[in-house]
């Protein structure tokens, strides 16, 4: 093998970089699975505790739903969403979603932080600002 030393050194450096995410997180595995909280005043007062779509669907697809909502409301002028139960929902992240889920930190961020995703919704939209700001 030509330049064996250099090649082996190169492989070691490469491995050191490639495995960085693994060894840098060693010992941090005690992070608990996320438990998004539904404990908000508005949700408590709801007679039927149901989101716009079934829980399982929302858990898996809320991001796509929000994107569809966004395009329907903003680009097509269709501001009403008719859900699978046939109910009409006014499309608005700030004024519909966050009205119930006013606890962004304990609801949205709980999973987002766990999954290490950082959606930029709140760069523009308020997380029910009135209550958040008062705190």
């Amino acid at each position: 093998m030509y330049d064996g030393g250099k090649i082996i050194a190169g492989i070691i450096i490469f491995l050191a970089f490639a495995t960085f995410p693994f060894y840098s997180n060693i010992g941090k595995a005690d992070i608990k699975p996320p438990k998004p909280s539904l404990d908000t005043p508005v949700i408590k007062e709801l007679a039927v505790k149901k989101c716009v779509e079934p829980k399982e669907y929302m858990r898996a697809n809320h991001m796509q739903l929000l994107i569809d909502w966004r395009d329907a409301a903003l680009r097509e002028g269709k501001r009403i969403y008719i859900n699978s139960r046939g109910e009409e929902v006014f499309i608005s992240l700030q004024n519909t979603c966050m009205k119930c889920h006013s606890n962004k930190k304990k609801f949205c961020d709980e999973c987002h932080s766990y999954a290490n995703v950082d959606p930029y919704c709140w760069d523009c939209h308020f997380a029910k600002a009135k209550q958040e700001e008062q705190r």
């Binding site: 669907y57 002028g77 501001r79 009403i80 008719i82 859900n83 699978s84 499309i91």
Partner: peptide, 15 residues
């Protein structure tokens, strides 16, 4: 093939 649960979108009737 991601599931789609939706039924439809419509403008408000008071706009």
């Amino acid at each position: 093939t991601r599931a789609k649960a939706f039924s439809g979108y419509t403008p408000t009737n008071y706009g």
